[in-house]
Design a protein around this nucleic acid. Structure first.
Lengths: 234, 234
DNA sequence: CCCGGACTACGGGTTTCCCACAATATGCAG
DNA sequence: CTGCATATTGTGGGAAACCCGTAGTCCGGG
């Protein structure tokens, strides 16, 4: 799936997201930065990078966001992923052989960031320093970069763009409440008693919830509602 | 619920978790550090702190881990939570009025850490510096402390203790597969066709899955299985 | 060799869920 | 004022799920 580009989004006065990446590069002596946010509901990707346009286009055309090990490894890691550890991956060689033709270095690292709502992003920085310079730069700026990554991710989330991208359906309060009870193991009759409404009313709300969630069955509605954080899996 | 104390866990040669906290305090001129990991399946808490034993006991006896805003706020935040922002909370005053009697300062901050498997921890540091000293220390060490928090959380997770705490039930491969299809919206008949087994067999596996998960109904089994990461909410 | 777990299948019955249709009342935005 | 969404209630009927009990084979471990 083609990732959505957030680079040119309107800003809150402090410049676009792409401009912010440029400033971070300037501040720490980096070549490029790539931020990839992942919608954990449908695994779609949205992002903002300050790579050259030619490389951005090529990357997406080749579908590299689906195999790029710098993203995959970081997605599964608690801490940052040094690209040096990925050099033996075929996928790494494939992506970065092409990248070299666009002047992109193979030296870099990716910092995973996770937010409180299951949202996550991968903050990758690239540098064409020598290995020795890279290690020094890394030691000096690593913690600061982690902070930048967190703040950047927070800004992406705060601007609500990812929220809009998720475009998840909402449930009415009653629908959500009833589905929560169903997920907790109560029958429709039980829920009617608990909420002091008729079983028919429970039935109608359940059907409406299924429709809104695009679910064929009530168990599927429960699964989707949990995935979208509308109810809890207790 | 009483949080589980991990302080005295055997170590990998680099000292116990509590000793590691002591070293971090010494390195950054802090009074105490408290790490609280949360099991997001049943919201139980496990942790390690190097507070005085008397305060540890008092804190748990009073059930403060259930109302401590330094934990609650951090649990819901992308970035760190400065305790100064919490001073107006009744719960903060209640907890830290007691803490003062044990020599615990009200100056500190909490760094939330989130891992790739939905695991999360709250890494709190306390300092009795003057406000001016605290701000300087904060600026100087904040990024480093975020790194320490991540590494500490990683170590807790890597040692597997939290995994053992979860102690979640397992499903057989067939049970999991069938529940996954049910969560995806298929009827029992559909699942029988898909897997080339009879509807009766599907029924038996579903019943078995409900029993293992302690669920009264199939929607509840789906909810619990998702919560335990046995199936996905797609 | 025995036992337990996993997987498979069935009969019969009851309960629950779901579908389609119909209706009223309230609040809010245009 | 109108239209829409939400919440509520109801009927009839069929489909699906669930319950209970029973039974067989295969495989791995003790």
């Amino acid at each position: 799936m083609k990732p959505l580009d957030l680079g040119a989004e309107p800003d809150d006065g402090s410049g676009t997201l792409a401009e912010l990446l440029d400033r971070i590069c300037a501040r720490y002596g980096l070549d490029y930065i790539a931020y990839a946010g992942i919608n954990t509901v449908d695994d779609s990707i949205h992002g903002v990078v300050n790579y050259p346009d030619a490389w951005k286009s090529h990357y997406v055309e080749q579908g590299y966001q689906l195999i790029d090990p710098t993203l995959i490894a970081a997605s599964r890691s608690v801490g940052l992923v040094e690209w040096g550890r990925l050099r033996d991956f075929d996928s790494f060689r494939r992506v970065f052989r092409d990248a070299a033709e666009f002047g992109i270095s193979t030296t870099g690292l990716t910092i995973p960031v996770r937010g409180p709502f299951g949202d996550k992003g991968m903050f990758s920085v690239v540098s064409s320093h020598t290995e020795e310079e890279w290690q020094r730069l890394r030691r000096e700026f690593l913690s600061a970069l982690q902070t930048e990554a967190t703040l950047f991710h927070d800004r992406v989330m705060r601007e609500g763009r990812s929220m809009k991208i998720m475009l998840q359906p909402t449930l009415s309060e009653r629908e959500r409440e009833i589905l929560q009870w169903i997920a907790a193991g109560k029958s429709q009759f039980d829920v009617g008693v608990i909420l002091s409404i008729s079983t028919r009313t429970v039935e109608v709300h359940l059907r409406s919830a299924r429709e809104k969630l695009g679910a064929m069955t009530t168990p599927q509605a429960v699964a989707r509602a949990i995935g979208m954080r509308l109810i809890y899996p207790i």
